[in-house]
Structure formats: C-alpha cells, structure tokens
C-alpha cells in the first residue's frame, strides 16, 4: 500500500501535464486503462507529456468537469452520455433504452466514424472534442422483494434512477416509479424502505454493497449508456501532428483495453455480490422492450436523431 497522502501523485517534471477529471475510484477499469495509456503516451512522446488522473470527483462532478475542460482549466474528462445531451440533443439517441443489442454492437457504433464523426465534432464550438467512448456497462433493475420477470412485477416499486425526464418516463413504462436520488443516500433509503431498489450495472451494484439490502438483481438490460472521453480543443491543437496521431491511437487502445477489462471486472463483481446474498435472474426482455418503445418515439423528434437511430439499428444486423 502506498503511504503517500492525498489521492493524486503529481510528478515533478518538465513534461506538459495532461490533467484528467474522473468520477470513479482508482479501481475502475476506465481509470486503469487511462493510466496505462498515460504511461505509453509518455514513452512514445519521449516524456513530452505526462497524464495525471484525478479520481473520485476530486476536482468536481462530471457536469462541472465539462465546463472545466471548456475553460481549459483541465485537459480531459470522462463524461456519462446523458450529460452530453445538454449540449447537443442527438447524443440522446445513444442513451435510449434498448438502443444497443450488446456491448459489441455498442462499441462497434461508438467507434464507427461514418456514424459518429459529426456527432463527436458537434461540440467543438464549445471548446471541447469527443475523443472516444468507453463502454459504461449495462444497467439492470435490482430490488428488495423478489425477482423481476415482467413489467407487472415492478408495479408500485420505487426504483432509484439518474435524474432525467427520459429516465422517469422509461421507468414508468417499465412498471415502476422512478425516484431520482443522490447515490450517497440510496443505501439507507433502500434499507429503510423509502426505496424498493435501484438500477445499475453489476460493478456499481457490487461496489456499493447494495446486494446486502436488495438481493434480487434482474437482467432487464434496459440501458447501455456510453462514457465519453472529452478533451479541450486547446490540448489537441497544441500538440504536434505526430503527437496528435499517437494520442488518438493510444485513446483507441485505452478503449479496447477497458472493454477487455470490463468483462472480468463484472465477473468478479458478480462473485462478490453473490457472496453478499445476491440472486441474479433472466428477464422477459421483449416485454420490457415493447413497454418502453413509446419513450423512444418521443425522443426521436429531429430528422438528425431519426437518422442516427436508423444508423444504429442497421449496424445491429450482425449482432441480432
């Protein structure tokens, strides 16, 4: 165990430091992938750049981190997809329920420049650029009382969701009552019965020990929201062409690395959760998919969104 105090080691160096704001702890696969990318990037640029990642919201929450990147106060951040909707509506398409069939389908779309190039560059006016996207896990419903198999099973249950209108509508269609709440309060709220459960990927479900209090984890697979890596335009423009090329290459490698790491992390998380009493069950996904389809229609208002949604669906053919 390192004995150094404070969560970040800032190197004494002549290199240009690239500062990254990150919301999860250091154990997260995204952190690990970015950190190793930093080491490789440092080597390949002969020490011109050094990446320092601030974990656990040390520099601020994700929405605020976007603004820090825009200002140029920091250089990079990892941002959940739902926040990108606040800048450009079309990002919402990738956050719709059941829009991706599998992790492979999702990563295929997120890396397909024919589909995403316009979207990723659409925020450049705001002083930032989307450099790529991590897999952010698959969100499933968990609760205190029993396995969920159909939307009727969720009837009357208060399920904690991330605060957004789409999410509230979605949970209502799925049968439950979506209750937005800060993650810090969720454990006690479930324990005391204020909430009946939550929805999240296996990693967070296990890390937050929610298995102890809400042991029924049902694979509704309703959301697969990407996490975007954003960088300030200042950072990218200040790099030489050669360094820029290496940088983008390394970002791609980091994403591939994270996707590989993710599966084994999920397996470990499941083991931990099972040891804490969790029971995992499969679900009638078709019923849920049908239930939430009006939400999708509601969200696809602009021609651009519809086009994007169609592109995603055609890319799904090999994965069905």
């Amino acid at each position: 165990e390192e004995s150094s105090v404070g969560q970040v080691d800032i190197p004494e160096t002549d290199a240009t430091i690239i500062r990254v704001s990150f919301n999860q702890p250091e154990s997260n696969p995204q952190f690990i992938a970015l950190e190793e990318m930093g080491k490789r990037f440092n080597e390949r640029t002969d020490g011109a750049y050094e990446i320092v990642i601030y974990p656990s919201e040390l520099l601020g929450a994700q929405r605020e981190s976007i603004e820090m990147v825009q200002v140029g106060a920091i250089d990079m951040a990892v941002i959940v997809g739902s926040l990108m909707e606040n800048f450009v509506d079309e990002f919402a398409v990738f956050n719709l329920p059941y829009v991706f069939y599998s992790k492979e389908h999702q990563m295929d779309v997120l890396q397909n420049q024919d589909i995403v190039a316009d979207l990723y560059s659409s925020v450049e006016d705001g002083g930032m650029k989307v450099l790529g996207a991590f897999h952010g896990g698959v969100r499933n419903v968990y609760n205190t009382s029993g396995p969920i198999e159909t939307p009727a099973d969720l009837n009357g249950m208060k399920i904690r969701i991330i605060d957004s209108d789409t999410n509230i509508q979605m949970m209502q269609r799925m049968g439950g009552a979506g209750t937005p709440m800060g993650q810090g309060e969720v454990y006690t709220a479930i324990q005391s019965g204020v909430l009946d459960g939550g929805e999240n990927n296996e990693l967070i479900y296990s890390n937050l020990s929610h298995a102890e209090i809400a042991p029924y984890y049902s694979y509704t697979r309703h959301l697969m929201v990407p996490d975007y890596i954003i960088g300030s335009t200042n950072l990218i423009n200040s790099m030489s062409d050669e360094h820029q090329a290496i940088f983008m290459e390394e970002i791609q490698l980091a994403i591939d690395h994270q996707v590989d790491l993710f599966d084994s992390e999920v397996e470990q998380a499941i083991d931990t959760a099972v040891a804490a009493g969790a029971r995992f069950n499969e679900v009638d996904i078709d019923a849920f998919q049908e239930a939430v389809s009006p939400v999708i229609e509601n969200m696809l208002k602009t021609p651009e969104s519809q086009k994007l949604y169609e592109d995603v669906q055609s890319a799904a053919l090999p994965y069905r």
């Binding site: 603004e67 825009q70 200002v71 739902s82 926040l83 909707e85 606040n86 800048f87 705001g126 002083g127 605060d163 957004s164 209108d165 937005p180």
Partner: peptide
C-alpha cells in the same frame, strides 16, 4: 456566456 447554450436536463 460560455454555458448559455447548455441546458439543464430536468
């Protein structure tokens, strides 16, 4: 000025 075009989700 910088955040004028950013909307609050809820």
């Amino acid at each position: 000025l910088m955040t004028w075009s950013q909307t609050s989700a809820s």
